[in-house]
Write a protein that binds this DNA or RNA. Sequence first.
DNA 1: AAACAACTCACCCTTTTTGGGGTAAAAGCG
DNA 2: CGCTTTTACCCCAAAAAGGGTGAGTTGTTT
Lengths: 210, 210
Amino acid sequence: MKIQSPKRIIIVEDDNIIRNAFVTLIQQNSDYTVANAYSNAEAAIKNVKDDAPDICLMDIELPGMNGIEAIPKIKALSPYTQVVVITVYENDDLVFKALCEGASGYLTKNMPPQKLIDSLKELENGGAPMSTNIARMVVSSFHKNRQSPLTARELEVLELLSSGKSYSTIADQLFVDKETVKSHIKNIYLKLEVHSKAEAIEKAKKSKYI
Amino acid sequence: MKIQSPKRIIIVEDDNIIRNAFVTLIQQNSDYTVANAYSNAEAAIKNVKDDAPDICLMDIELPGMNGIEAIPKIKALSPYTQVVVITVYENDDLVFKALCEGASGYLTKNMPPQKLIDSLKELENGGAPMSTNIARMVVSSFHKNRQSPLTARELEVLELLSSGKSYSTIADQLFVDKETVKSHIKNIYLKLEVHSKAEAIEKAKKSKYI
DNA sequence: AAACAACTCACCCTTTTTGGGGTAAAAGCG
DNA sequence: CGCTTTTACCCCAAAAAGGGTGAGTTGTTT
């Protein structure tokens, strides 16, 4: 029994062939309807209130405003719209930027057509469709580097330091003397070859020690 | 053409019925072989070097050591082993802890059997198998809260402050005077109703402003 | 035009924090 | 038994943090 009206989708993609292929593919499925399709982000943003899309398929490389910048603008005008990035890029930076800006999924264009339909279904079910490599990149971003030169205690101190806490606050939290924290931090600086809090945090984050 | 030997899998799951079901399911597929199956983490860790598993399916709730703690121990002894958590819990905290400890995937036990096999295949292809809701939780963790009371500039300052930088460093980076940075920070403290760097960072992170 | 928010800078003040130097006693572990 | 780790203390000077007050400059909105 189907009582819901089809989900409204907009497509932002500058390549005519690909855009039309997406439209055709989606229109074949009665659960979805293409509310509109655009070749640039500006036009999509201008009409997003009228289009009232449930889902927005967004390319990144576009003439004018790029797809990443477009995401927050779309979401500001239509908060319930779920934006899924569809691109050829599997670049770390772009992926994390897109997600930070509010993307609900990230697909690469080399996927089989059925994967797109599956992804729409996944969105509906509260999921976050991602291509294989993207999922791994996202999960890997949580992983810590376990070959750190720092001891467990030093990592603990550095973690607290990186959250903006002062030596005394850290000392209280670890139930040790402030001077002990100082000692740990001196050793951390020695091992990381840095001379300040900011440098230590930067290096530790870059190396994924914390 | 199949020239590779089957991938070796170990299972850590205290429920006999579920464990045996997993074993049976996996053994039906010639691409995979169950190297061993354990009802607790300690036994799995003791044998992991001999088992030399490509993949470890890990439950969380176990007698003795829990599955989360077991992940880094498994990975320390057998770094190339990919650990996938399989549990009934869809709790934020557990998911992120598991990923931070080195899990390559996170599945829930209510998945259809075929999904497990698909997930093994996904691992092989460099993916990170996740259940629908887990994927969404992971992606959502990147999203920023766009209803922040802070201005764009204030967010910029707070971001740099949270990376451990001093007022003067922030000033240099933003090409403004140190006094300007101080002003921004004063306003940030006012708006967030805090009185220190640590409090501001904590509150901003909790509310996902940064 | 007036009001407002945002960004900018300045100068005052005090207290806290930081980083660097050295030293060394316990505790834990192979 | 040595080794690392964790703990703690001393001194010192520079830097940073925070709080107060005021004020000029943009924009935008009313």
